[in-house]
Design a protein around this nucleic acid. Sequence first.
DNA 1: GTCGCTGCAAATACTTTGCATCCAC
DNA 2: GTGGATGCAAAGTATTTGCAGCGAC
Lengths: 154, 154
Amino acid sequence: MTPRDDQHYLSEFERFLASKGLRLTVQRRRLTEVVMNTREHLSVDELLDRVRQQKLPIGRATVYRTVDLLCQAGLMHGHDFGQGMRRYESVFGHEHHDHMRCTGCGRIIEFQCEEIERLQEDVARKHRFTLQAHRLEMFGLCSSCTKLNPRRTK
Amino acid sequence: MTPRDDQHYLSEFERFLASKGLRLTVQRRRLTEVVMNTREHLSVDELLDRVRQQKLPIGRATVYRTVDLLCQAGLMHGHDFGQGMRRYESVFGHEHHDHMRCTGCGRIIEFQCEEIERLQEDVARKHRFTLQAHRLEMFGLCSSCTKLNPRRTK
DNA sequence: GTCGCTGCAAATACTTTGCATCCAC
DNA sequence: GTGGATGCAAAGTATTTGCAGCGAC
């Protein structure tokens, strides 16, 4: 991801904020940059750490509030991987995708499947449901862990 | 669901408990019955209420602990619908299915799609991932809420 | 009778909120 | 200068844990 992309996301966020009479502060800017510059799925604590590592003082409450705004702006998505806290990832830099989580090592693998997406729309239509979003998570053992646990295959 | 089914689930749970040197108590038995006799997705608080309505004194901690055991036994599944707490449902009485949650009224619609399941297995195989479980949740507006919010369709 | 189970209360974990001060616009 | 933003601490909500007494086996 290039710096140019940052600019793009930042101005998109700024536009969103302006449209609601809100402001782009240093903390909001820096958080946006952190989110946009990684493909990892970060928790609030991890976001907090990364911003602080850059010597920018920031409070936990601000992270929660900003993360919320970024999601509202559609620039970020929250996920619950059943670990007790939510994790967040940028919607940019990679297209829509879903996740597989290894129950052995915790590794998260992303994947895309056009056909599954299409079928979801079919299902929704069949129920006259207006689809806004979806979340598909698969749990199991990644290739390395499968080798280590030949018996745990269900 | 018939009483006969209860027996089946109960003895399955009992077998599970026995295999771990654990006991089938009144509280565990009653909770199992409550879970097995509804198709709703109940929260811990709701489970607590239902057992208490039956005049059986029970503590919240016991519900948490039992729910955990029932999940381990594979008799129940937990779901996170992004409402701040987990909800649980029996695995019996209805086959595997996924969920659509209406962001308008909170209604939960269940659906099944063989083809999506099959595609998931394909994806897993492609990544040499040993699939153990999955969770597909779709969010949007149900048919009634779609009528009320013609503009909120994304 | 033993050892697991229960309920309470306390502890923990994550997230939200109130408020005085601060700063983007 | 004004009104939104920040950070702290307190509050809120969901869940887990320690422990003394209880009860299934």
